[in-house]
Computed example of a mutant assay.
Amino acid sequence: MMATPDDEETAEGLLEVYQPEPVHALAPTKVFAAWHHPRKQFVRIRQWCSEVRKLIPQLGLAGGDPFRYLTLPGNELLDIRALHGVCQPLGVKLRYLGFNSVGPNTPDQAELALSQSEVRTLSSIDEFSSVIEDRLEAVANDRSPASARARQAGPFHAINLDLCDSIAFREVGHAKGSPLEALGKLLSLQLNSSTPWLLFITTKAQPALLGDFARDGFTLAIDANVDASAEFRARLAELVAVDLDQLKADLAAIWGKQDAQFLRLFCLGLGKWLLGILSHAAPPRQLKLLSSCYYQSGPDGPDMLSLAFRCEAPVHAVKDVYAILPAPDHPPQFSEIECALDLSAGVGKMFDLDDLLAGDKHLQSKLIAQAGQLLSQARYSEAEYAEWAEAKFV
C-alpha cells in the first residue's frame, strides 16, 4: 500500500506556517512557473517547514538564536519566506546563505534584489543573511569566495539543495561544476557540527541524466551492503520488485528505465553514497531518510525526487580507564548496516505526490490557498494564482 502523510498533521502545518506579513503591490506582468505548482507547496510544508519546526526545539534554540540555513532560494525567496513563518513563533532568527546565479542587469537579478529587500524587513530574519550571486558548484573550489562564505557561515542546521536539474549528471571537472562535488564539500563542512542537521534534496532523476560515474558509485555503495547483509539483500529485492536470485543483473536493468523502481533505486543509491561518507567520519554519523516523494515534471512519467534526510552523530559514553567514575550505560554501537537497512525502509515509504494530490480535493484547496498567500508576499495576485493552480488538477 502506498505510504501517505497524515492528513491532520498536514492540515495543521498548513495553518501554522504562515504569519501575517505585509502584502506588496501586485506586478501584473509576473507569470507563474513550474515551481509555483501546488505540489511544491506540499514539499515546502510537509518536508521543509515540518522538519525544521521539529528540529529547532531539539537544538535548544531560543531568544533570537540563529537557525543557520543554506539554500538555493530562487529569485522570489519562497522557501525563506515560508521558513520565516516557522522561525518567528519559535523565537529564533532565520540566518540564510543562498546561492543564485542570476545574470547581471537582468530581470532575474532585479527580482532577486527586490525580494531580498522585502525579506529583510521580516521580523525574524537575521541581519547576517545574504544571497550570493553565484552557482552552488562554486563551493567545490576551496579558493572561491563562495567556498569562503560557506565556511564562514557554517556548519548549518539545514541545507536545502532545491535543484531543477539532476544532482548526478555533471561529474567532477565539468566546466559548469558538479553538484555532487559541491555536496561533498558541504558534507565535509558539516562534520564540524555536533548537533543534528537536515538535508533536503530536490533533483531530477532520469536515466539519461544520470552520469556513468554516479550510477557506478551508487551501485558500488548498494553492492557493499548487498554483499555484507542477507537482510539488506532481501529487502532490496522486495523494494524494487526483482528476483532475489538474480538481484544484481535485475538492478543493472532498472538503471535504464524511467519508472518508480528507478526512482527508488536512485534514492537508495544517493542515500547510500551519503551514508558511506558520513559513516566513515570520526566519529561516524548516522543518516536517516525522513520522507521521500516523487512527481512528474516532463512527458515521460515521474522524474523528480524530493527527499528529506536527518544527520546526527551517535552519543559516545566517556571511557574512564581508571574506574574513578561510575560505569556508564553504554549506548548501542554505531552500525552502518543498520543505518542502511533503515534507509531502505525509508525508501519503501516513498510515494507519488501527484497521485496523492489527485485523490484529495481538500488538500488541493488548502495547498492552493496557502501557496496563494505565500505568493502574494512576492507580488502575485492570489485570485489569478487560484485560477492557474486549480487548472493543474483538471
Rank of each mutant, 00 (worst) to 15 (best):
D7M: 09
D7C: 06
E8P: 00
E9N: 03
E16A: 13
V17K: 07
V17Y: 08
V23T: 11
K30A: 09
F32L: 07
A33S: 13
R39W: 04
Q47H: 11
Q47T: 04
L59W: 06
L61G: 07
P73D: 07
G74Y: 01
H84F: 07
C87S: 09
K93W: 04
L94M: 10
F99Y: 12
N100I: 04
P104C: 00
T106E: 00
D108G: 05
S115Y: 07
R120G: 01
L122H: 10
I125N: 03
I125G: 05
S129F: 02
R135G: 03
R135M: 07
A148H: 11
A150W: 10
G154E: 14
I159M: 11
D162S: 11
I167F: 10
E171G: 11
A175L: 05
A182W: 06
A182Y: 07
L189W: 08
Q190M: 13
L191P: 05
S193L: 04
S194V: 00
S194D: 01
W197P: 02
P207V: 05
P207Q: 02
F213D: 12
N225A: 09
A228D: 09
A228L: 11
A228K: 12
A228Q: 11
E231M: 13
L236S: 14
E238M: 14
D243W: 15
L244K: 14
D245T: 15
D245E: 14
Q246W: 11
K248D: 10
A249G: 08
G256Q: 08
F262M: 00
L263E: 06
C267N: 09
G276A: 11
L289N: 04
Q296G: 08
P299E: 05
G301D: 06
C311D: 01
A313D: 00
P314L: 01
V315F: 02
H316C: 00
A317H: 00
D320Q: 00
V321T: 01
Y322S: 01
F334S: 01
S335H: 03
E336P: 03
E336T: 05
I337Q: 03
L343N: 08
S344T: 08
M350Q: 03
D352V: 01
D360R: 05
H362L: 10
A369L: 15
Q370L: 12
A371C: 15
Q377P: 06
E384S: 12
Y385M: 09
A391E: 15
A391P: 15
A391N: 15
V394N: 15
